[in-house]
Design a protein around this nucleic acid. Structure first.
Lengths: 214, 214
DNA sequence: GGATAATTCAAACAAACGTTTGAAACAGGC
DNA sequence: GCCTGTTTCAAACGTTTGTTTGAATTATCC
């Protein structure tokens, strides 16, 4: 039950950042919840910024590694590679983390939050983590959807990540746009996401009309 | 050139909130950029929170009103109502605001940001603004896609708003996931969005298999 | 032009923030 | 036992924060 102090700090920071945002969460709130001394954050991590980075590093590396592993397994498996399977390789690891417990739920919410709220430094860190993964998926999708120019694949991946981030960030916290609904089975939602996004990715390209005068 | 003080405060707040986030922006930074006295914020708006709410209220009311007006015009117009046209009614007013100039760009980015970062109070305010609009669109889509259960329509609208918010929040600021790209023609991006989202909305429902034992 | 209201201003307020410090408590090796 | 390195702790540091105050300035109306 009694974890390491730095682990307790990471847990508390993850929870509070996800609930209130980064700037709105004070080190005093974190150390109180973690039953640690205020100075412990600087002893173990150096600063508040580095604590935030550590919160992400703790889970994101494994998450993206699993995404890549599932994509590779798909391609070397010899079976039929579908858009749905590629999407599942990207989505399932994070949604499974989400289903795994409160901590995973908090972390995925934090992931969604960071996509837009993050400071410059954290954004750079996150981009380094994501770039290889996204490029790899983009390559596979390009092969699967050869009629789509790379530019369109790129944007459709943006839309995909957006829908995903929004879903992460909005549930189960009080919903912004809609009346509160239960999350339902995580698997059901995953099927919904894949159905929706696969259809979007598969849509025929936007035909480039001859440059009209505006 | 010389605007009202409260207008200059709104402009400065809109710009700085969009760039740095709400908590990270101090009233001193705002009043300095607005060439106003520090106390002016409290004189004109009462508090920092109410200033933020005013920033949203200034443009959001008109934006949502235009969305509703375009949807109504569509339905009473007698012509064929397509999913694409409904999506355009929702998306175009905001993307046009975006194309209109730096201010609109900032505001739409702020909109995307607020979907996830917002404090409790602002979220309530935004929900009040959005709920009637979203419910109205949901009703129209339900009629257009009768094979989809309301629950699925609801989630697909969530995905739609997510993709939209992410697009707003991520452009033109340094992109998180991808190398920087130019925004290109706003119209081109709008066609991309509608093509992608319409296909997602039109996807056949997820068939509910007889409850398998997990 | 003088009275009245609206607005601006410099200055100060208490509270909260991230960070630092130096001593105390604890650990394991010999 | 003592010694060495790690970890915890209470207290304080200097800033910065949102907010308040009361006088000075400007605009408005009769």
């Amino acid at each position: 039950m009694e974890e390491d102090t730095s682990q307790r700090l990471l847990d508390a920071a993850e929870a509070l950042f996800a609930e209130q945002g980064f700037a709105e969460t004070s080190l005093r709130a974190i150390t109180t919840q973690a039953k640690a001394n205020l100075a412990a954050v600087h002893y173990h991590f150096g600063s508040k910024d580095e604590l935030l980075r550590a919160v992400f590093a703790r889970r994101l590396k494994a998450l993206n590694a699993e995404r890549l592993a599932r994509l590779m397994a798909l391609e070397t498996g010899g079976g039929l590679v579908t858009v749905e399977a590629v999407l599942a390789a990207f989505i399932e690891p994070s949604l499974r983390l989400r289903r795994a417990g409160v901590q995973g739920e908090r972390f995925t919410r934090l992931l969604g939050l960071a996509q837009v709220e993050a400071s410059k430094a954290l954004r750079d860190f996150l981009r380094d983590q994501y770039t290889p993964v996204v490029e790899r998926f983009q390559r596979t999708l390009s092969r699967l959807l050869p009629e789509l120019p790379p530019e369109e694949i790129h944007w459709r991946l943006c839309f995909t990540v957006g829908a995903l981030s929004f879903t992460y960030a909005g549930v189960p916290s009080p919903r912004l746009l809609f009346a509160n609904r239960e999350f339902g089975s995580g698997l059901w939602l995953q099927r919904q996401l894949i159905r929706f996004l696969a259809a979007g990715l598969r849509a025929p390209p936007v035909e480039e009309k001859a440059e009209e005068v505006p």
